[in-house]
Design a protein around this nucleic acid. Structure first.
Lengths: 191, 191
DNA sequence: ACAGCTATACCGGCTGGACGGTATACATTT
DNA sequence: AAATGTATACCGTCCAGCCGGTATAGCTGT
């Protein structure tokens, strides 16, 4: 009794895996089909073109991000700075139980593939990004400090995209603590 | 009276332009040759394979970065925090006269192409990166703050890779001023 | 001072393989 | 039997790399 879109997910996972192991130029329909345990015809049934496949990858990434942010914000009792904190957790937090860093990998592969093939595939992602950026800047403390916090979080996940050597556990913890202090220490509005 | 490696440069520039305009998957030898005004044979004379071409792109990026860092450091009279300041200027500074943001674009295209084709092409870049990271952490103030400054600078140039909406001129200036304060305000060593 | 030789720089056609996409047949469920 | 999902065979195009050339400049012995 497999869910009806089970194959779709398998294909998207396969596409991600292929990008990660063989690079964006190694993302061929045949490889994805093989990796997903599906024939090429089956693949093309679900994603009628390569571009559609890429769009599917991006869409899933966005949906993941969106729902995760919403969850975190809802769970944060303190109103001031929740967007910022949610953003930090989402972007820079170390691996968590539940969905380890599969999401991170999916994001990585989707971004790489999209940039390699056609920049415009990222447009929907950029929109979401801009949106949360606005929330962040509005929702807490000094906007310059908020921006700096956001940028640090960005750097952490962006550099992971290129496997640029990340910080030591220790340093990462220290930095995160520092950010946490900034995003919670001072309130917005009347001082 | 053209320098003897003039064609090489033309080819590298062409490769960069092709990646920028047609994406990493559009980086074909024929296109590069056409863009460079060279025949395919001529291209393959200078770069005997596509991978060699990519290595050439990366190497030039590294050389650019290296020499620019050295220059900036040499020109900075104040010893404390020079690496950090040089890094900020190099990574996050707005366009300058002389070499506008051609370097930035070359970096962008090289990274995109390398990641799309084979991650390991970035290894030499990662080494340099790690090296300067060490310098930065050693050369100034509190290492956590130094790291945060570095990460912000990273975010600024990394996000430009994906054309993720950058900050407004105004906000960017404010952030840079803030970083400048951190990297110059407090001395290392005896307080 | 020039014939012969070699190295450097560049040219453009060719090929074998891979890739995206189509067509169509087969299977399973409703 | 219609709809949905999967499989196989195939087509046209594109591409990386190869190869046989050309042109020019520099060297070398005579």
């Amino acid at each position: 009794m497999k869910g009806k879109t089970d194959t779709r997910k398998k294909i998207l996972d396969a596409a991600s895996a292929v990008v990660l192991s063989r690079g964006a130029t190694g993302l061929t329909l045949d490889q994805v089909a093989k990796e997903a345990g599906v024939s090429k015809g089956g693949l093309l049934y679900h994603f009628p073109s390569k571009e559609a496949l890429l769009r599917g990858m991006i869409e899933r990434v966005i949906a993941d991000f969106e729902s995760s942010m919403v969850d975190r914000i809802a769970q944060d009792p303190e109103e001031n700075g929740r967007y910022l904190r949610a953003y930090i957790s989402e972007a820079a937090a170390p691996p968590e139980p539940g969905s380890p860093q599969e999401r991170r990998k999916r994001l990585q592969s989707a971004l790489i593939a999209a940039v390699a093939v056609d920049n415009r595939l990222l447009d929907p992602l950029r929109e979401r990004y801009k949106l949360y950026q606005e929330f962040v800047e509005k929702d807490v403390i000094d906007s310059v400090e908020a921006t700096i916090v956001r940028l640090v979080a960005d750097a952490m996940w962006l550099s992971s995209l290129f496997d640029i050597p990340t910080l030591t556990e220790e340093m990462q913890t220290k930095v995160l603590n520092h950010l946490e202090k900034i995003s919670s220490g001072r309130r917005k509005g009347k001082p």
